[in-house]
Write a protein that binds this DNA or RNA. Structure first.
Lengths: 194, 194, 194, 194
DNA sequence: AATGAATGAGTCTTCATTCAT
DNA sequence: GATGAATGAAGACTCATTCAT
């Protein structure tokens, strides 16, 4: 029964993603994932060779998507020397077409799981993406980062997304909540322009 | 040798605080704390009756300090309807005398451990402090919190302090780093005044 | 193989009951139970969530059985002011149909484990049963208990059953052994009548 | 300071004996003995090389005393074919001069500790004494023991003494309590004569 | 495809014991 | 004579993982 098989597989992936988000990959328990997915530990290992491969299966598409997106247009992007007015306009646009904006692709369970990862061999790729992301942030906001400035901003964004994703079942509620904070942060950053 | 004894005790406290900060109290392992403190698990239990008491020994002074500070002046503080100019001036002052400002007392490993706590009987006190903190934030920035806005801002601040404390051995470096972000956030918030 | 599974489960229950009887629940070691049952500690926890639940699984049917039996006929029973002759006749009857007599239901590993219990949440139920038992003893032998008299007699009976159960693999041998003592005790008690 | 030294030593012995009686040698904790004796574990090991030697120091005099007593008069004693009247008279005498009777020497914390012993190298001596004791019982009451009859009676006596010793601080209260049971048991036994 | 039995190393904690001071 | 620091093994229990069915 092709359908039923996929159902189980998808249920496991869904439950695992939730647990990985809530407790972090390292502290999520296979036993509890099995229970919440209404199956057995053994059966999970029938679909996924290991906890790490389960993680991979969840994250790889997202990772590749981001890596691809990151590699594009990295130069033309330097919108540096934006004036405040330009920046505000920019933000409006982002907010308007959030889902297709670069920022929009972060608003995702899986990205948060990835960026909170502490062990696993995906760590290397996480680090690369993190590095790439900070670079983007720097260029985007024209920050000459003498230290970990944009790293922190990024971390805040991550934490914020995690917070609203866990708190709100409904994705749109989560997004609305997120925007409140994003607004503040964006304003803060552009208020420092010049 | 009196000195040696205290050395071990302090080493355990130091290592434990580091691990609690990095991994969170719940996920820190007594085995690893023992290893990093160059002693045995058994010996840790010679100094501290339990993991929870080890946590208490680390946190209690800090908790009492904060609880005391929170209880003071809670009303005179409503600087509401600050103009942007006043707000900016305020921020300069905070930055200038950070360590003695209310904000300064947060810049502390132990506070972060506390605010990240998920189990232990200290949870109740953490929740109280957290509640008190969000209240302060709301009054301070004159936020009428329609939803979890200030909760998120607080979470950001916590994450930020955690980040810089882990990254920088030197406390002043950490502080300098923190200010960069704090500046942005503060500016963002006051840019929304009116 | 369905059979094998139950074999292990039963083996664990059997070994655990033996260890609980010999050393008492509190001092029985899961490690040793695992060894004697030719399995691993982890596997025991596959069958029973905890040591206490293992105890429950062993005791609950017995407890319910006893509680039920105790609640019945508690009043009609007052055979007080029995003459020696009546008492002796009574004893013969008990001996003759031991297994169905009230006394017979004590002749059980599990009852002894229960009555020797010192911790666990089953303590409350043990105490109740113990209290009920001493009451029965008092009424049965028409003892007006100025102090801990019947408590001691009960304790003796318990110890005696424990002793013969540990010493004799064969249940009938154990019973025969027990009767010798019971005879003595019973005679002693009725010799004091009047 | 000779006096003080002995005080500590005696305090340890006293506390240890209490704990051994209450929890049994195997389950008594050196840490708790140290605490109750107002000293440290290390200091206990200054007086006694090991837990087992501490046990020995407590039991050896008693053991030797009993072993000696057991070896004497073992033959002249056969009061066999006592009539009930003689037996009752005998019992009165025992009760009257209990402390110096053979039975009296059992009414002792230390004897109970010994007879409840489950490990330690003193086990062998315990078994010997136990064997010797049952033999005495048999001869005393003229029992031809086809099985473990007198063993059980002995066990009852032991349990009874343990019970009253733990329950009553005052030694005379304990003895009075014990006699109630002893009376019953004795009557029971002699009622079976012929 | 699915079950659940089994394992061994990990969790926190207590134990008896040793040793330097 | 006394302290308490230190150790390693054992206490109950959870973990990710494997395997026979």
């Amino acid at each position: 029964m092709q359908i039923k098989k996929d159902e189980v597989r998808l249920k496991i992936l869904e439950v695992a993603a939730d647990e990985f988000l809530k407790r972090g990959y390292e502290n999520a328990s296979m036993r509890i994932i099995a229970q919440k997915a209404h199956t057995t530990q053994g059966n999970i290992y029938h679909y996924f060779q290991s906890k790490e491969i389960l993680l991979e299966e969840i994250l790889l598409p997202t990772i590749e998507n981001i890596e691809c997106m990151m590699s594009k247009h990295i130069e033309g992007e330097k919108a540096n020397l934006m004036t405040k007015e330009q920046a505000l306009k920019e933000m409006k646009e982002i907010e308007h077409d959030f889902d297709r904006s670069k920022l929009g692709c972060f608003f995702d369970k899986k990205v948060i799981i990835l960026l909170k990862l502490e062990s696993s061999h995906l760590l290397a790729r996480k680090e690369k993406i993190l590095y790439s992301l900070t670079e983007h942030l720097q260029e985007y906001f024209n920050i000459n980062d003498d230290s970990h400035y944009s790293e922190i901003v990024l971390n805040m964004l991550i934490e914020c997304v995690k917070h609203v994703l866990i708190e709100h079942e409904n994705l749109n509620d989560a997004k609305a909540e997120f925007f409140k904070f994003f607004n503040v942060l964006f304003n803060g950053i552009i208020s420092q322009i010049r």
